[in-house]
Amino acid sequence: MSLVLGDLKWKCWKNKMKTQDHEPIPEDMYKEHILELYKSPSNFGTLKNLTHEKTEYNSICGDEITVQLFVKDGAVKDVKFSGSGCVISMVAASLLTDKVKGMKVKDIKILKPQEVLNLLKIKLNPGRVKCALLALEAVKGALRS
């Protein structure tokens, strides 16, 4: 009996130690497709003809993204972004600008944050959600102005 209990105790202790171990965040976040996009993002630059523009900041990281849009007949005909930031904010901006190109303004205005996060196809560390949504804030802000 005491042996069984001892074994059980040891197992509990082992499991406890396991959860206390340093658990690395999955390296998921820096997958190949993400790093590739970071190195050569889509729609990076500025527009000559634009109707809307907005710069958003993330004061915690010092990230800064400016989005420029050319809207005609209620839809986004062209879009570019510029600025600097971490991998997540830059890649999200690249993916989002691809997505909104051709979209109707009224549909962009109801775009949900989760839809943008889904574009990344990675599991995000909670601390980086704000980075991933910076471009969306800029796009929505620009369309409000």
């Binding site: 965040i25 390296e27 820096y30 990230d63 600097s84 560390n125 980086r128």
Partner: peptide
């Protein structure tokens, strides 16, 4: 970006 460095070091 420094945050990417910190995140990768954490791994």
């Amino acid at each position: 970006h420094p945050h990417d460095v910190a995140e990768l070091l954490n791994n």
